[in-house]
């Protein structure tokens, strides 16, 4: 730093004859090093002495002229009242009005922010409702689709009655022979225990031959509970058994929940 100070750059900084770039550098050094700042102060003090000495006389008296040129009002002294008496009532009314206005503005701004919160709450609610509506519409469309499918004139309805293991259970198969689709209504089946699934079988009777149509692993107690499966078989009966998760190659007959014969 001593070298920097001795370079003489600080004198030229106080003179104001450095380039912009050099000026920025000195300013940085001033912020960083107290000894540089100290040096600048001392240089400035010396230069002030030197320039003052070059004045013909002290220009104190010219201040009045300059003040009148600048149209000074002298108001700065009146800003701080010296005593209560000197503060006119109009000033108090002014302060009161200002305070009242401030209170009013604060109140208004709080009201505005309250309303803004309400609007954003409502907007959020609306988005939520739109989402719900969309889901409902999708559900409705899916239901209509299934309903249209099982209403078709070629569709055979096969009721499946509850068997020994679950006498209360029931199900229906709506079988569209033309499109080889079967819609299984499982709303009458109890919810399967954990680790178990229902498996749907197509049966031919003489001899009894089961063919798996699929596993109802998308069982959903809340949903439509009508499951679409492919059935390209020449089914004579349908059965539903409870099987371990993933299904079995052949039906576990003592877990036969429902069974129904296709009426010819």
């Amino acid at each position: 730093m001593k070298e920097y100070i001795d370079s003489g750059i600080l004198e030229l900084y106080v003179y104001g004859v450095l380039t912009h770039q050099e000026n920025v550098e000195v300013y940085k050094a001033l912020q960083q090093y107290p000894e540089v700042a100290q040096e600048v102060e001392e240089i400035e003090k010396a230069l002030q002495q030197l320039s003052m000495a070059a004045a013909p006389y002290s220009p104190e008296k010219m201040l009045t002229k300059i003040k009148s040129k600048l149209e000074f009002t002298g108001d700065d002294e009146k800003v701080i009242p010296l005593s209560r008496k000197r503060t006119p009532i109009i000033a108090y009314i002014g302060y009161a009005a200002a305070a009242l206005l401030l209170v009013g503005l604060l109140f208004q701004s709080r009201e505005v922010s309250k309303l803004e919160t309400q609007i954003s709450d409502l907007e959020r609610e609306q988005i939520l409702q739109e989402g719900k509506t969309q889901v409902a519409e999708e559900n409705l469309a899916a239901t209509k689709e299934v309903l249209n499918a099982i209403r078709h004139k070629d569709v055979i309805k096969v009721p499946l009655a509850g068997q020994a293991v679950a006498p209360q259970a029931y199900a229906s198969v709506f079988w569209d022979k033309a499109s080889n689709k079967a819609y299984i209504d499982v709303s009458g089946l109890p919810e399967p225990p954990a680790g178990k699934v229902y498996q749907v079988w197509s049966l031919t009777l003489e001899p009894l031959t089961p063919t798996s149509m699929g596993v109802l692993d998308t069982y959903n107690a809340e949903g439509l509970q009508i499951i679409e499966l492919d059935n390209p078989n020449a089914s004579e009966a349908f059965g539903i058994t409870l099987e371990p998760a993933g299904g079995s190659a052949g039906p576990t007959m003592d877990q036969l929940y429902t069974l129904g014969v296709v009426s010819s």
Binding site: M52, A54, A55, S58, P59, L63, I66, F72, E77
Partner: peptide
């Protein structure tokens, strides 16, 4: 305005000297 007057007291004589030189 008061601040201006103080600044004038502090800097006017040096300024006057610079101009005069």
């Amino acid at each position: 305005e008061k601040a201006f007057e103080r600044i004038y007291e502090m800097y006017s004589e040096a300024t006057f000297g610079i101009i005069n030189s």
